[in-house]
Design a protein around this nucleic acid. Structure first.
Length: 579
DNA sequence: GCCGTTTTCGGCCCGACTGTTTTCAGTCG
């Protein structure tokens, strides 16, 4: 049983306990355990074998025993019992926006509604509005929520979220009443997918301008529906049914509000608990000493962290993954920045399925201020992507050699994204690989093989001295494919041993390695290479997404090949080949 | 159900908005 499967069971238990109106803290315990299991990098079965289960935060005696029961029997008695006592359709009902476990329970008890279909019918018959605590408006909202659920159901990619937020900021930013205007939330943390978009702003004269800003916000051209509109907070739905919240806060509270609306739920709880221990309370308006309603801090995040006796925690780290402990000891890493990046290790040219010639790609790299760029076209087996026959590889080597002779501003590395075949061999022979500057190896087929086989394929590729980087190591593809199963402990071990880098593929639908694996890889000393996988010139911009993943993975520039100058990189690449 | 620099018991974050109420519960983030 995989970590994800076990985590999903605990999430489901939490939701069913909610419906049974159980103690909220007990529910939170299950959620917390699930979140922590989900982000483990080792199979939980191994942790159990080593007797280290109680080392995982949020897992105590009771949940620990349940994990062991699941691993040994494949089942969990409590879970089975819960499932038979809670109609499964109720979970779905409680998940509808505007509804929760309380109302779902009332619907079940009073009208015997067990699923969304039944709910829709009851609403249309006007039965729901007659229930105590319900009314006409709620009935309407439920119908709207059901209709919307049919049309969506997936989270937004970071890339899309950034685009929408940027456009809103650009539009609203035209208002002269607005002083500060910044996205917060999971977007500011640069989470790989975004549930909704939170934007905060301050205005010159709150008593007058707040209202104007809200008026303007709910009437922006991209707004499709208005969910809520108040003096300080409004929520709208824009294209693709994405929810956007705008809050107006006081200038003196801006830092506190940014902090409050940026941190993940767990991070905020940890911050709050810390404030309490220091005899303070913190909310979106500021940090207050108990019994005193004049804030000690609140205008900037920096002063708040200072008062909390913490190093400044960059937004990307505010996920409750040990950042408070590190910040307390002043041991947070200096995170890599876009300005540290000197090259891109994964780009496709018109030789295979890319959109730029060698000249154009080099030009694009120069415009971005890079020292080097690796042109890594697909190998021969990937026919669908116009993979290169050996003959054309030679031709490409020759063209790039000539380019580098005539142009000195950017160094173009001739590379390949070579397929790792289903038996772990490579799509080109060693002789051809040895003639390339850089070799990126990737799995593009046989995703459904068992974990052991997939792991072995990648291990075998890394053991080849001509392979420098493993591209998109977990194979995940948002909205299309779950990551395939791998023994990441083994992969990290061999990567370190062989001097192979793991890629952060910066393409918006991949962002692979995932951030929590980056953190683990860095702890083990494994190096990371960020590649945009650009198939069009403008896609070189994806580098910023890759840097975000690296930052969320606690990486500093030392962990990353892209921060190396060309000569440093050439040495690293040569070292693996044994030059 | 977890956790511990007051604690093995008693805490566990907190405010805005909506809709149904006529002072507040439910939901959300």
């Amino acid at each position: 049983m995989t970590n994800q499967e076990i985590a999903s069971i605990f999430y489901e238990i939490a939701r069913m306990l909610e419906l049974k109106d159980e103690n909220q803290f007990r529910i939170r315990s299950y959620e917390k355990a699930a979140r922590n299991i989900e982000t483990l990098t080792e199979p939980i079965s191994e942790i159990v074998q080593q007797g280290q289960l109680n080392k995982i935060p949020g897992i105590g005696q009771s949940i620990g025993a349940k994990i062991e029961e699941l691993l040994s029997t494949g089942k969990l008695k409590q879970y089975e019992e819960l499932k038979s006592s809670v109609p499964q359709g109720l979970l779905e009902i409680a998940n509808l926006p505007g509804l929760g476990q309380k109302r779902a329970r009332i619907l079940y008890q009073k009208l015997n509604i067990k699923n969304v279909k039944g709910l829709e019918r009851a609403c249309k018959q006007g039965k729901v509005q007659e229930l105590p605590g319900f009314g006409m408006k709620i009935e309407e909202n439920i119908l709207a929520a059901i209709a919307m659920q049919k049309s969506i159901g997936k989270r937004l990619l970071l890339f899309q979220g950034l685009d929408i937020a940027n456009r809103i900021v650009r539009e609203l930013g035209k208002m002269k009443q607005i002083k500060k205007l910044e996205p917060a939330g999971s977007l500011r943390r640069r989470k790989e997918t975004i549930g909704d978009i939170d934007i905060l702003c301050t205005v010159d004269d709150p008593s007058k301008s707040s209202k104007l800003v809200m008026e303007r916000f709910v009437k922006l051209p991209m707004v499709k529906t208005v969910i809520a509109k108040g003096e300080t907070k409004s929520s709208v739905r824009v294209e693709d049914d994405v929810q956007v919240d705008l809050r107006v806060v006081d200038d003196n509270s801006f830092g506190a509000a940014m902090m409050y609306f940026t941190g993940s739920k767990d991070h905020n709880i940890a911050i709050r608990t810390r404030a309490l221990k220091m005899g303070c309370t913190i909310n979106e308006y500021g940090l207050f000493e108990v019994g005193n309603n004049k804030p000690v801090a609140g205008k900037t995040e920096r002063e708040l962290f200072e008062k909390l006796k913490l190093q400044y925690i960059p937004p990307e780290l505010r996920e409750c993954r040990g950042e408070l402990e590190s910040a307390e000891k002043e041991q947070l890493p200096v995170l890599v920045e876009q300005s540290d990046i000197k090259g891109d290790s994964h780009v496709h040219s018109t030789y295979s399925d890319g959109a730029g010639t060698i000249d154009e790609i080099a030009d694009g790299a120069e415009k971005r201020g890079y020292e080097w760029i690796a042109v890594t076209d697909h190998s021969q087996s990937l026919k669908i992507a116009n993979g290169l026959e050996p003959k054309r590889v030679i031709q490409k080597i020759e063209e790039i050699r000539k380019y580098n002779e005539q142009n000195k501003n950017v160094r173009v590395l001739c590379g390949t994204e070579v397929d790792i075949m289903s038996d772990g061999s490579l799509d080109y022979d060693d002789e051809l690989l040895s003639r390339l500057d850089i070799v990126v190896a990737a799995i593009h087929s046989g995703f459904k093989q068992p974990k052991e086989i997939l792991t072995k394929r990648i291990v075998r590729a890394m053991e080849n001295k001509y392979v420098h980087i493993i591209a998109h190591p977990t194979g995940r593809h948002f909205g299309k494919r779950e990551p395939y199963e791998l023994d990441m402990t083994e992969i990290f071990r061999v990567a370190l041993e062989t001097g192979t880098a793991l890629e952060i593929n910066a393409h918006p639908v991949r962002l692979d390695l995932p951030d929590f694996y980056c953190q683990k890889a860095a702890e083990k000393g494994v190096q990371i290479a960020i590649g945009t996988d650009a198939h069009a010139l403008w896609e070189l911009e994806y580098m910023e997404l890759g840097v975000s993943v690296a930052r969320r993975g606690w990486l500093s520039k030392n962990n990353i090949w892209n921060s190396r100058s060309y000569s440093q990189l050439a040495k690293i690449l040569g070292r693996k080949r044994g030059d």
